[in-house]
C-alpha cells in the first residue's frame, strides 16, 4: 500500500518537474526568439518566468531525490565503525536531516508570509508577487520531503541513507 503511494507520488512529482522545466525552456527561448527577430515586441519577463519554473522544479525534485537516495553525502569516515554503530549514527542523521527540513518548512513559511506582507514584486513589467513565485517554493518543497520521509519510515526504509531504491525508480 505504502509502496504504491510512494510510486504514485514519485510519478506525480516527475510530471510536475517535467512540466516546470519544459515550460521554463519554452518561455525562455520564446522570449529570446522575439528579442532576436522582432525586438520591438520583446518582453522583459521571459527570463524571470523561466527562473520561477526552475526554482519550483528544483524544490519539487528535492523530494524525489530523497526517495532515490540521491542527496549527496560523504561516507568515508563511517567505514571504520561496526554495522551496528553505523546503523545508530545513520538513524541519528536521518533524525537531524528531518528536523532541519521541518525547521526550514516553518521558517520558509514565515518568509513566504512576510514577503506577502511586504508585497515585494519582481523587477519586470509583470510585477509578479515574489511571495508566490519564489518564497512559497521552499516550505512546499520541505513539506514534500517530510511527507516522503514519513512514508518511507512506515515502509521500513531509512530516508537520507544514500541507498538507491532501484525497484521504485525502475517503475517510472
Amino acid at each position: 500500500m505504502i509502496t504504491k503511494i510512494l510510486t504514485i507520488w514519485t510519478r506525480i512529482e516527475a510530471v510536475l518537474i517535467g512540466l516546470c522545466i519544459i515550460a521554463a525552456l519554452l518561455v525562455f527561448l520564446g522570449g529570446a526568439a522575439v528579442r532576436a527577430f522582432a525586438p520591438a515586441y520583446s518582453v522583459d519577463w521571459a527570463e524571470e518566468v523561466a527562473l520561477y519554473g526552475i526554482i519550483w522544479a528544483t524544490v519539487l525534485a528535492g523530494s524525489s531525490l530523497v526517495a532515490e537516495g540521491r542527496h549527496l553525502h560523504t561516507e568515508v569516515f563511517l567505514a571504520r565503525f561496526s554495522p551496528r554503530t553505523r546503523a545508530v549514527i545513520g538513524w541519528a542523521m536521518t533524525g537531524v536531516a528531518t528536523a532541519f527540513c521541518a525547521a526550514m518548512m516553518v521558517y520558509g513559511w514565515q518568509a513566504y508570509s512576510f514577503a506577502l506582507l511586504l508585497d515585494e514584486r519582481s523587477a519586470s513589467s509583470l510585477r509578479v508577487p515574489q511571495a508566490y513565485a519564489v518564497f512559497l517554493a521552499l516550505p512546499v518543497g520541505m513539506a514534500l520531503i517530510l511527507g516522503r520521509v514519513a512514508l518511507m519510515i512506515l515502509s521500513g526504509q531509512r530516508p537520507f541513507s544514500g541507498v538507491v531504491h532501484l525497484r521504485e525508480t525502475e517503475e517510472l
Binding site: F28, T58, V59, Y107, Q110, A111, F114, A137
Partner: peptide, 21 residues
Amino acid sequence: LMDAAAHSINGINSTTFLAVP
C-alpha cells in the same frame, strides 16, 4: 531565522542558475 530561509531560496533566484538545468 525566516531571513535565513528567504536567503536560501532567493539565492537561486538568479540568472546564473538559469543555464544550469
